[in-house]
């Protein structure tokens, strides 16, 4: 049972100590990781994935339930507490979707009859359906990404979930987030998407390889987030129209579908 994970400060790219001592993240919390490209977001996620003990280039330490984790937890996939959805958009393994899911289930010590469930949920996130006899390498970016999401949700099913840029590949990001989080899981999500960032309870801001600050989402941001969500839904509709070859009429007005209290809250 994981109640908390903690990150102890390491060093940034210039070798200077990071601007914090320790971050504790508890059960059920969703934390964002934001910052420009190259600022060290993926490296932070890597540190957590491998439960760094001052032995990575950042020198950070990661604790589970306030103590140094058993080395077995770092290496043995059957005991792993951490599932990771990394940035990659394609599979390279030359095997069928079914064989892949069975093999991965074996590695994780899971039931082997998850195949249909994983494929069903992956297909809820993407346009073109994945079939179990398809080869992994022929899947499109969106199909691969959706399968990775469903695999992380059901096969890797772990108390800690690390998500690196789920907004890539044009899959349904909110549904994907729902699939991956919940049930008391600790979720860390690297994102450039303001909507996803504001959906979290806190966000870690990265700069030059180090953690610059930790920012609690304000009430104001939370209500802005709700409005942005409407905008996002509209954008999604238009996107789907464009993708399916439908003409987008001028009468399709954003303003109409906004809730009446919509006002950009950005000016103050």
């Amino acid at each position: 049972m994981i109640n908390s994970i903690s990150i102890l400060a390491g060093k940034n790219k210039n070798g200077l100590k990071e601007h914090f001592n320790r971050i504790d993240i508890s059960r059920g919390e969703i934390v964002g990781i934001v910052g420009p490209t190259g600022s060290g977001k993926s490296a932070l996620v890597e540190d957590i994935e491998q439960l760094a003990q001052s032995d990575t280039s950042t020198q950070r330490k990661v604790l589970i339930n306030n103590s140094i984790p058993d080395p077995e937890l770092r290496y043995n996939p059957k005991k792993k507490l951490i599932a990771q959805l990394s940035q990659n958009m394609n599979f390279i393994a030359d095997m069928s979707v079914k064989d892949f899911l069975i093999l991965h289930s074996k590695c994780r010590g899971k039931n082997l009859n998850l195949v249909d469930k994983v494929i069903y949920h992956a297909n809820q996130l993407t346009g073109e359906p994945i079939k179990k006899e398809m080869n992994l390498t022929v899947l499109s970016g969106g199909q691969s990404r959706s399968l990775m999401v469903a695999d992380v949700a059901f096969v890797s099913d772990s108390p800690v979930v690390l998500i690196d840029e789920i907004e890539n590949a044009g899959i349904k990001k909110h549904e994907a987030m729902q699939l991956l989080s919940g049930n008391g899981k600790i979720v860390l999500v690297v994102t450039h998407d303001p909507l996803l960032a504001l959906l979290t309870q806190r966000r870690i801001v990265m700069e030059n390889g180090g953690i610059k600050k930790i920012f609690g989402t304000t009430e104001e941001e939370r209500s802005l987030c709700k409005q942005l969500y409407q905008v996002d839904k509209e954008l999604f509709k238009v996107r789907e129209m464009v993708r399916s070859g439908v003409e987008v009429k001028a009468s399709f007005s954003f303003q109409e579908s906004f809730t009446s209290d919509f006002q950009p809250v950005l000016e103050d």
Binding site: E46, P77, A93, C107, M148, V155, S156
Partner: peptide, 14 residues
């Protein structure tokens, strides 16, 4: 390993 998914990494390791 950073270029492939966690699942493929775990299968490779196995």
């Amino acid at each position: 390993g950073d270029i492939i998914s966690q699942a493929e990494r775990e299968i490779f390791r196995e």
